[in-house]
Design a binder for these strands. Structure first.
Lengths: 114, 114
DNA sequence: TGCATATATAAGAATATACTTATATACTAA
DNA sequence: TTAGTATATAAGTATATTCTTATATATGCA
């Protein structure tokens, strides 16, 4: 049950990534599954390049991983990351973001990724 | 045992504050007690104004509180903050910073705050 | 009162961050 | 092959961040 400690530099880097509302919401959206870029664009109401740039930071730091499926690239949490415990802890303390995906689904806007 | 959820904006703000090595180390140093500004200056090897500015950010966001005692101002974690659970979780995942204070004590540099 | 110490604040500079628009790349399907 | 869709990258800009140096404030003590 003992968690491995994360060195301070690495912890600070991850916390800095999570310390941005857009990226924190993204991580929240990934809590229960995958999302593709177009879904983030819809939910977060931001430009596609901006979303891609945030995802790149998360990926470069190993917080998320990607999986291509046809034209789409699906992102998911990288639970194998040695800093995942930070992400996990934070996810327990913030509200679920799932409802935003549900809304999207209700509007029929999630079809692009089926 | 159920923790109250922290809204995403507020969580992101706190995580941003913790996402800086200097401030994260400060929080780590406060885990087991108070520290005064001159101790932070010694341990972190940074200028006094820089330390004060970091402490101000932490204080403005309610993460730490201050207590004046003579010429010295002692900082401590604000365990009453509604975002303290984030700080608490992070503290469990990073190494103890106490040894740095011990070193200081060994060098006799902690006398200023007795 | 006057000086020393501890801390805070102000102003400015260098750098980092997060957008924007434009364009490149990868895949699908006609 | 060509057009269309999804995503990534590049370049530029506005703003935020974190230092620095100089100065202000608060306390203690002779």
């Amino acid at each position: 049950m003992e968690k491995t400690l994360i060195e301070i530099d690495k912890a600070a880097a991850v916390l800095k990534l999570l310390g941005d509302k857009t990226r924190l919401t993204m991580i929240g959206l990934l809590k229960d599954g995958e999302c593709c870029v177009c879904e983030f664009v819809e939910v977060l109401q931001m430009s596609q390049p901006s979303i891609s740039q945030h995802l790149r930071k998360l990926r470069d730091n190993g917080l998320v991983k990607e999986r291509r499926s046809g034209q789409w690239i699906f992102y998911s949490l990288n639970r194998e990351s040695d800093t995942f415990s930070i992400v996990e802890s934070v996810l327990e303390l913030i509200p679920e973001q799932m409802d935003k995906l549900k809304e999207l689904e209700n509007k029929g806007l999630r079809i692009c990724c089926d």
